[in-house]
Design a protein around this nucleic acid. Structure first.
Length: 216
DNA sequence: GAATAGATTGTCT
DNA sequence: GACAATCTATTCT
């Protein structure tokens, strides 16, 4: 059973985008929880050297420093790595996990607020062959993009995309619709004490590409 | 299907 | 030198 959409593309191109209108910077210039929720169903598009790849966002997490102890910007921590979060919204915050996997975040909120939305899972929409090639021959479609590290590898994003404009010509978001959206606590932030239990993870209910089965 | 070990490197103390 | 917003292969049941 394939839930993949857009496999029959090309469809008639929507204004400004491939599957829908492009999102403008104002989309990111809102409170982080609002943006994290609104990202579900939207489509990330990366126009890279190996062609265009795209996926529907089906899982996100909100990180709201400086008060949020799960955020890399907790306590106002400002280093070369976190610097982009203190700038204007609508750019990427890329960081390396466990020394091997990159993660994609959107900088959101007002300039100076170190807030970010982590993209935890997408549903492949376009460029399936490129994604499979990058992920490797032993990886099935269910494991193509169902996790922060997996989707970055599939989309061809890494540290080189740090600070990339999300309203640019290489990377952007397009409008899209979401099914029922569920919420839960965030994954693998147990170090953050009380903040770990905040329901700041959003996901599309029933979508097979969501990374971790939600606990209700 | 579930549990576990091991990989591997930028960033900060 | 320690650690990390993870993934994969392997080894069980």
């Amino acid at each position: 059973m394939s839930t993949d959409r857009g496999l029959d593309l090309p469809m008639p191109a929507e204004p400004g985008g491939i599957v829908g209108p492009r999102l403008q910077r104002a989309f990111f210039a809102r409170p982080v929880l609002e943006v994290a929720r609104a990202c579900i169903g939207k489509v990330v598009v990366h126009a890279g050297p190996d062609g265009v790849v795209a996926g529907r966002i089906v899982e996100t997490e909100a990180y709201r420093g400086p008060e949020d102890l799960a955020a890399h910007s907790a306590g106002g921590r400002r280093t070369r790595r976190t610097e982009v979060m203190y700038g204007p919204p609508g750019r990427t915050y890329m960081f390396l996990l466990y020394g091997m996997h990159w993660a994609l975040n959107f900088v959101v909120g007002e300039p100076g607020e170190p807030h970010a939305v982590l993209v935890r899972a997408i549903e492949p929409v376009l460029g399936l062959d490129a994604m499979r090639a990058r992920r490797g021959p032993r990886v099935g479609d269910r494991n193509l993009t169902s996790g922060p590290g997996k989707l970055c590898q599939a989309l061809g994003l890494d540290g080189a995309a740090y600070g990339e404009d999300l309203c640019g010509s290489r990377l952007w978001l397009e409008d899209g619709r979401a099914g029922a959206v569920g919420r839960s606590s965030r994954i693998n932030v147990d170090y953050a004490g009380e903040w770990a239990s905040r329901p700041w993870r959003f996901f599309e209910r029933g979508n097979p590409h969501v990374s971790v089965a939600p606990r209700t």
